[in-house]
Nucleic acid binder design. Structure first.
Lengths: 230, 230
DNA sequence: CTTGCACGTAAAAATGTCGTAAAAAATTAG
DNA sequence: CTAATTTTTTACGACATTTTTACGTGCAAG
């Protein structure tokens, strides 16, 4: 999951909107509200949603049409709220593409748990490739694993953070101040000797010839630069 | 999904099994039946399932433990049936990894629609084999059985959950916070001494030389890593 | 040629984390 | 209720990481 999940709630009654908002914000979600189907579709069209919570009983149309329309371009999870308990209604909503159907009244806890279950396996989110290669080194950021010639290389927490930070900005010069502030904290921006030590460690562990670095380059007086291609 | 979907129904009452079987066969599913949790886990261990329908109220154990055990190697959808309507029960089941929770009595149509929704959204994910080997140890997640040199090894519930969690993420670093949150609960994320004790137990019971672990590795300051290949 | 500065390396000192054993408390089984 | 098992807590030595210190190198300016 990259960042906080974004949830759209489409519901005409302000009280229930508020109820749902509070429930989801308790799970660190960013909540977007819409009071009508038309507005909801517009907001959904902006994209980037991790979940849609939809009341079927809106005055300006049938929520099931909302689901069909949404499904035209998105596979993101949809959780239906409804006062109606008729089985046919549930079947229609689910077959239209909804993922869950919750009848009012419902508890906060259940709502949150069902929302978590839906967001748990999100198919959304094109992540940047989690493996980065340079020289004879392969870095798997998702596993926090570094290999050199196929052998695991052990990095300490600070070494790894420094590596990850440089890998995240290939080709760019990272100033000493920025590296120090991000890794050690804002009060360490003057302590450039830390960087000398730890860049040295990285070169020692990852460079072909630590004395003639080809990837972790020094920009004298400025900072350091990571270069993928030698 | 290729061909007819395969669905496992775990339920002790024959009448309900029959009811569910007929409902799902109407949607051209191939239905596999199990009357006990142990049998269910064994069937699930054979793999190739597109959906598990699980009754929580089985006589031979708690269905939530089934979900946890199943989740150790599969991400396939799980639909819970239960006579119990308490919200906490639902929350626990969903948070343990279930995808939907249906309370009895329920209609055929709704069951079918919810099953369709689950199978539509989650094409059978890649599952790890329920039997994992490393060193001189064989772990059968579907039977909750651990062997070392052919001899059964007894693990306490917490030891086993820790093992299952690490086995489910081979090669990956699991942070202390994540392990603590998933095993002891979110309020224990700071209590890293638990992990020191229990990782020690696992090494004691499963490692060739507990003093020089080759599979349960420490990432100082971060967490632990399970490595299959030594 | 000398001086001053920024950087690189190595190793010691300081700090923090981890592993283990064993006792106390809680839970489960009989 | 008692016994056995499991979980929680505590303490301390061993180990890993971070920080500090010291010294060597290259380079550019005076």
């Amino acid at each position: 999951m990259s960042g906080t999940p974004r949830v759209l709630i489409v519901e005409d009654e302000a009280a229930i909107r508020q109820f749902v908002r509070l429930a989801l914000e308790a799970d660190a979600c960013q909540v977007i509200e819409a009071a009508t189907l038309a507005d909801g579709l517009a907001r959904a069209g902006e994209g980037g949603l991790d979940l849609v919570v939809l009341d079927l009983g809106l005055p300006d149309g049938d929520g099931i049409d909302f689901v069909r329309a949404y499904r035209a371009w998105s596979e993101g999870p949809v959780l239906i709220l409804s006062a109606r308990v008729e089985e046919n209604r549930k079947i229609d909503a689910l077959d239209a593409g909804a993922d869950d159907y919750l009848t009012k009244p419902f508890g906060v806890g259940e709502l949150r748990a069902r929302a978590r279950a839906l967001m748990r396996r999100r198919p959304r989110g094109e992540e940047l490739p989690p493996v980065i290669e340079f020289g004879e080194v392969v870095v798997d950021l998702s596993r926090r694993q570094v290999l050199r010639r196929g052998e695991p290389v052990h990095l300490t927490p600070i070494e790894y953070r420094l590596l990850a930070m440089m890998l995240a900005h290939p080709g760019q010069v990272l100033t000493q101040r920025k590296l120090l502030a991000d890794i050690w904290g804002p009060s360490y921006v003057e302590s450039s000797h830390y960087l000398r030590v730890y860049v040295g460690h990285l070169r020692q562990k990852l460079e072909d010839d630590p004395a003639q670095p080809r990837h972790f380059l020094t920009e004298t007086g400025i900072g350091y630069r990571f270069q993928v291609t030698p």
